[in-house]
Each structure stands twice: as C-alpha cells, then as structure tokens.
Amino acid sequence: MLVVPAGSYATTVRSTDDAGYSVDVAYTLAIDAPVILVDPATLPDGDVGTAYSAALSASGGAAPYSYSLLSGVLPVGMSFSSAGQFSGTPRSDGSFSLTVRATDANGNTGTQAYSFSIAAPTLAITPATLPAGTTNIAYSQALASSGGIAPYSYSLVSGSLPVGISFTSAGVFAGTPTTAGSYTTTVRSTDDAGYSVDNVYTFAIDAPTISIDPETLDAAVVGDAYTVVLAANGGAAPYAFALESGALPPGIGLDGAGGFNGTPGASGTFNFSVRATDSNGNSGTRAYTLRVDPRTLVLAPASLAAATAGTAYTATFSASGGIAPYSYALGSGALPAGLALADGV
C-alpha cells in the first residue's frame, strides 16, 4: 500500500474524448494525518520502594504502535519500553513531567504529556523501645526497618551506649553491660536508596538488688560452738560469700557458702560486712554486729561445812559453765592454819 504523507496536493486533470476535444479541471487533494490518541490521559502516582507499573495504549492509527519518551526524565529506578510500559521500583521522590510519543505502523504519531508524583518512603524502626538489661548478664537486641528499600544499614547518631554494649551496622545491640544506669542514644536507619529515619532509645541497665539474710546474727558465747548460715536472694544462684570489711571474733570463720562456723575464744562486740556475689558477678553487702558474751562460771558448793579444830577436814570444789579443765586458786582472804587448797580440794 502506498503511504502518502499528509498535506494539500494541487493537480489538474484533463479529459479527452474520442474526437480529440478535451477539458481541464483543477483539483486540490487534502491528505489528512490520522489523530493518534494515547491512553490513559493521566498516570498514577507512586511511592519510593514500591513497584510501579502502567501500560499505555494508542488508537486512531494503524497498529502496531511503538512508543518513545519524547521529553522529560523518569524517576531513578524506573524505565519505559517501546511497548508503552512504565515499570520498575522508584528510588527517588518528587514530581515528574514527561511527554510520550506513539508511532503507528505508517509512521504517524501522537503525543501525550504526563505529570505524576513519587512520594518519599516513610521508614520505621522496630522495636520502638529497647528492653532493659541487667549488669553482668549478656544482652542482645536486633533492630528491623520497614517502609524503604532493603537492605538497611544502621548507625549511632548521638548519645552513648552502656559500658560493655556495642552496636553494629546490621542493627544489633550486643554485649555484657557492666554498669547500671540509664543511657539515651539515637539510632539512624538508612535504606538502599539513601532515605533514613532516626529513633531515640533510652537504654536502662538495672543492677539486681541482692539481699543477705538474716538481717541480724544471734549472740555467741565464748567457748560454745557457733554456727549460722547466711542466704542470699535477688540474683542468680549460686552465691559466693566473703568478708567485705571488719574482723570476725577469734575462732570464728566464714566459708564461701555463707556459713559462720567455729568456737569463739574471746568476748566482745565485732562489726563487719559480708558480700554475696551471684553467678553473674552481681553482688550485695550487709553489715553485721556479732556479740560474743563471756561464759558464766558456777563454783560449787555455794558454802562450806563447818570444821572442827584438830579434826581432819575435806571439801571438794567443782566448776561448770566454762571450758574444762578448770584450775582453782585462792582468790582473796586466807585459809585457817593447817588447811590448803590444791586441785579444787
């Protein structure tokens, strides 16, 4: 088929009869270009990080049609095919204006101007808050991001972390905190297209309250075996006990399991502190006062029988309440002539 370009063509046609007579007629031939329409009239808006797709179609000419971008720039990450297909995942936001040309099989064309918007992504970091940690206990918390284009990278913008805790570019808090306190830090998550969001975290590191029981110690007595076992709670068993400060009565010891054991050898008041340390290294202390009372000795008999001059006399003493063996001596005064005290007799 002959394809004639659109335009206005002037021509004169002559008709001649059989006898040779003729006539001329002038003609003007108008060749109109087809009106090629491109649909749709508008393009949908999109979002950064969300797949975009829109197909064009043309009418009014001779199929098939091919398409091309006549002017304007597409968002980063999007493409336009000769089949009239917009596709891709936008990586930049903004308002975009462009003109598309449709060409039919005969080379006739039509254009359509478009304006559409790509919205910036709304990034979010989860969790919104961090769980509290405990001193000397391993801590790990991973962050996750959404709303943008993966992968995401993370960084600390401001603030500080607890001693012993680190933060990776993969968004993981990890380590073993050693110091209790409240820490505030700002984390930034950046997606693959360069969009970012900040989140402020308050990081609480708690120290367990380790208490020691009993609150007070029973009094001891010089020479009597003494045993008291301490117990700790509030941390992670088992606990180890040690003398923190002060001194124990002579003859009394404290073992690692929290047991006071021994036989005090001196009376008095003894002040000291005990520390209990749990299996994670957390500890607590308690101050104690241990009173060691002297023994109360009893001497028998309470009185002596009367003696007769010139007659043999014997009286035997015995003692109790102390630590055997006992020794005896004259404390004061004088014995009658002829009497003596030896070995309690």
Score class of each variant (00 low, 15 high):
residue 290 L to C: 15
residue 258 G to V: 05
residue 120 A to L: 10
residue 75 P to M: 14
residue 300 A to I: 05
residue 298 V to K: 00
residue 223 G to M: 09
residue 49 G to K: 07
residue 164 G to R: 10
residue 192 D to S: 15
residue 100 V to S: 05
residue 52 Y to T: 04
residue 331 G to Y: 03
residue 15 S to N: 00
residue 24 D to H: 00
residue 87 S to D: 03
residue 345 V to P: 00
residue 188 R to D: 10
residue 281 G to M: 10
residue 235 G to H: 00
residue 68 S to G: 10
residue 310 G to M: 10
residue 283 S to Q: 02
residue 254 L to D: 06
residue 162 P to H: 10
residue 234 G to H: 07
residue 181 G to Y: 10
residue 233 N to C: 00
residue 328 Y to C: 10
residue 181 G to F: 14
residue 3 V to E: 14
residue 95 S to F: 08
residue 186 T to L: 09
residue 36 I to S: 09
residue 135 T to V: 15
residue 24 D to Q: 00
residue 12 T to E: 08
residue 318 S to C: 11
residue 64 P to H: 08
residue 69 L to I: 06
residue 311 T to C: 03
residue 30 A to E: 12
residue 272 F to T: 14
residue 283 S to W: 06
residue 98 L to G: 07
residue 42 T to D: 11
residue 136 N to P: 02
residue 183 Y to R: 10
residue 263 T to N: 09
residue 286 R to I: 12
residue 132 A to D: 01
residue 117 S to Q: 14
residue 170 A to I: 08
residue 56 L to F: 03
residue 222 V to F: 03
residue 334 A to G: 06
residue 23 V to M: 05
residue 218 D to H: 02
residue 238 P to V: 10
residue 3 V to L: 15
residue 114 Y to V: 15
residue 3 V to K: 14
residue 77 G to D: 02
residue 66 S to I: 12
residue 31 I to V: 15
residue 200 V to H: 06
residue 249 P to E: 06
residue 58 A to P: 08
residue 244 E to W: 04
residue 208 P to G: 06
residue 295 R to F: 06
residue 311 T to K: 02
residue 212 I to D: 10
residue 141 Q to Y: 01
residue 331 G to P: 01
residue 171 G to L: 12
residue 295 R to S: 07
residue 328 Y to A: 11
residue 300 A to C: 03
residue 172 V to Q: 05
residue 287 A to W: 03
residue 337 A to L: 13
residue 303 S to H: 08
residue 257 A to M: 12
residue 274 V to G: 09
residue 93 D to N: 15
residue 68 S to V: 05
residue 273 S to H: 04
residue 284 G to T: 03
residue 303 S to D: 05
residue 81 S to P: 09
residue 317 F to A: 07
residue 33 A to Q: 13
residue 150 A to S: 15
residue 152 Y to V: 15
residue 285 T to E: 05
residue 334 A to S: 12
residue 342 A to D: 10
residue 145 S to T: 15
residue 176 T to R: 13
residue 95 S to K: 12
residue 341 L to K: 01
residue 147 G to R: 00
residue 233 N to W: 01
residue 161 L to G: 08
residue 227 T to K: 02
residue 163 V to N: 10
residue 341 L to C: 04
residue 282 N to I: 09
residue 68 S to T: 04
residue 84 G to V: 15
residue 76 V to R: 00
residue 220 A to R: 00
residue 38 V to R: 04
residue 121 P to D: 12
residue 326 Y to L: 14
residue 201 Y to C: 11
residue 314 T to W: 01
residue 198 D to L: 11
residue 301 P to W: 06
residue 286 R to L: 15
residue 203 F to N: 05
residue 276 A to T: 09
residue 133 G to D: 04
residue 311 T to L: 11
residue 110 G to L: 11
residue 261 N to I: 13
residue 122 T to P: 02
residue 257 A to R: 04
residue 18 D to H: 00
residue 167 F to G: 05
residue 77 G to R: 02
residue 345 V to E: 01
residue 254 L to F: 08
residue 198 D to K: 07
residue 25 V to E: 05
residue 93 D to M: 13
residue 19 A to Y: 01
residue 136 N to L: 04
residue 29 L to H: 07
residue 179 T to K: 13
residue 178 T to V: 13
residue 286 R to C: 06
residue 274 V to M: 08
residue 79 S to H: 04
